[in-house]
Design a protein around this nucleic acid. Sequence first.
DNA 1: AAACGTATCAACCGCTGGGGT
DNA 2: TACCCCAGCGGTTGATACGTT
Length: 246
Amino acid sequence: MGRQPCCEKNGLKRGPWTIEEDHKLMSFILNNGIQCWRTVPQLAGLLRCGKSCRLRWINYLRPDLKRGALTESEEDMIINLHSCLGNRWSKIAAHFPGRTDNEIKNHWNTRIKKKLKLLGLDPLTHKPLNHHDNCKSTTEVLNQSFSSTDEANMGVNLQNNIVFNQFPYSQGTYSPGLGIQDIKLVDISNLPTSLDGGSVNSEKTDFGNTFYKGNEELQSADYLRQWNSNPVSWRGYNHFGHGFLS
DNA sequence: AAACGTATCAACCGCTGGGGT
DNA sequence: TACCCCAGCGGTTGATACGTT
């Protein structure tokens, strides 16, 4: 006898969740808590498997989720943690209250990896790449021309000569036409980290857990109750469109 | 304006480890 | 000890948004 499947595949819905489904799941969990994910869809009246419900809750519906883009300081911290922990996303996410492992994993794969490569660093080892690896050396990186997207990823700006030091592994200046100059790689073992309060300078763009209903900011003690009766909106959160944002 | 390419991220899949029996 | 069930994890996929030509 083989293992019982987590759910019957036939007749179950897959793909993006609707507002109605979200509301059903949210209401059910807030009223009943979570005992067994396998039973949640049936009890909540959802045509989803328990696994899908669990994922939706953890990655999207949990009221303590932090909304908005990851800040520079969070990104720095991810890089530092990744150099110690590797791809253990859940361990890394544990250092970021309100952030999910999925979110951090996606951010790493789509942005940080590129950023490291552009600066001639191996995203796996966090060490400078060399010719034997068929990758750009630091010198090649310095001499290449950058697109605006590259520059955005690296924290530099085409219009101005700026010092870029947000990025913890390298420091230098960038000038239009001249490229990056005076770059130096920073020994990460000696870097102050976000963990010990010595983070690099960064803009604090933090949407945090601020909830709105109309123009009224809700206190944290109220938002679960408010959601249950009428979904509230998060600042900076527009996935559901205007219809959802009351 | 249309076509195409690229980036993003929500959601899925398969595997693993822990707890219960 | 062996087996089963489940939650959790990390890798991958695919739909969509966005940018470029």
